[in-house]
Simulated scan of single mutants.
Amino acid sequence: MSPSDERKVAVVTGGSSGIGFAIAQKMAAQGMRVIITGRRRDALDRAVTQLGGDAVGIVADVSSTAGLDALFSEIMTGFGSIHTLVANAGGGVHAPLGKITEAAYDQQFDTNVKGIVFTVQGALPLMEPGSSIVIVGSTASIDPGPTMSIYGATKAAVRNLMRSWVSDLKGTGIRINIVSPGPTNTQSLRDAFGENAAEGMAFLKNKSPIGRIGEPEEIAEVAAFLASDAASYVNGVELFADGGASQA
């Protein structure tokens, strides 16, 4: 890859599966040069093969500042700049009050909050006026539900980080927004329910005002809109893509 290539560059963290992969597919379909990150080389390689074209997978753990430094150094050398950053990497551990462990707490805050902070901060030197940052949040920021208190707290923290950052970015020409999905049909959601997956998915479907949960491709459409010039006057919003479930 040459830094002189004029095609726009999109970076999607946690892009090897689920919502992140769907967003990477959408960006690639729009003709962007797509870089996905993840912690597992095998998963990245499979995703890159599916994405085709000149997609690139870089191993990086967003909870490691050293890992992020290496990531952005590699992007600078190989691509020169970032036009769209999708900070998607994250995860949750379900546990009710009384069974929350320190390890689970640290894991979620290190990935979902620290990871977002230093992903965005690390990307900024590679971004120019007209660039866009899209953070993948969650409706858990306002409607966490039982057993999701820590996960919801991390997503609420990210929402408040952005409230400050939109002012910090004044004058840069860089927009920043959050897409907050509701329940979405991914393997990670099913895994979160464990042996109660069928029951959990049915509960979420019944809760939805439109009678179903979302698909990763639907979240990708919203992320792509927020990143695009069509949203050039949209800045500092948390856009809920949940079929109205968090309002029900």
Rank of each mutant, 00 (worst) to 15 (best):
A156F: 05
G137F: 03
A156P: 11
N177Q: 06
G194K: 03
K205D: 13
T172D: 02
A153T: 15
F203R: 12
A227K: 00
G214D: 12
G200L: 03
R190F: 12
E195N: 10
I213P: 10
T139W: 00
G145S: 03
I210G: 13
M201R: 01
P144E: 00
S167D: 09
E195M: 00
K207L: 13
A230H: 11
P216D: 04
A231L: 03
G182N: 12
I142K: 01
M148H: 11
R212L: 06
R175A: 02
T147F: 04
G211K: 11
V222Y: 02
P181I: 03
S208D: 09
G173R: 07
R175I: 00
L226R: 02
M201Y: 03
S188V: 07
I142N: 05
E218Y: 05
D191P: 03
M148K: 11
G145Q: 08
N235R: 00
S228Q: 09
E199L: 15
L169K: 09
P216I: 01
G173D: 08
V166Y: 13
V222E: 00
R159V: 14
Y151A: 11
P146C: 05
E217R: 01
R190P: 02
L169R: 05
V166I: 14
A227Y: 05
M201F: 08
P146D: 09
P181H: 00
I219E: 00
A220Q: 01
P216C: 00
D143K: 09
P144A: 00
D143V: 01
K155F: 10
L226G: 01
P209V: 12
E221A: 11
A156V: 05
G194C: 11
P181L: 00
P183N: 07
R212H: 12
G182T: 06
V158W: 00
K205N: 12
F203Q: 15
T172Y: 07
D143C: 01
T139C: 02
E195A: 14
N185E: 05
R163H: 11
G145P: 08
T139E: 04
P181Q: 01
K155H: 09
S149L: 04
T184I: 04
A223F: 03
I213T: 06
A202Q: 15
E195H: 03
S208E: 14
T139V: 14
D229G: 09
R175E: 03
A220M: 06
S141A: 15
I210Q: 15
N196I: 03
T154C: 13
S188Y: 05
G211L: 04
P216Y: 01
S232D: 10
S138N: 03
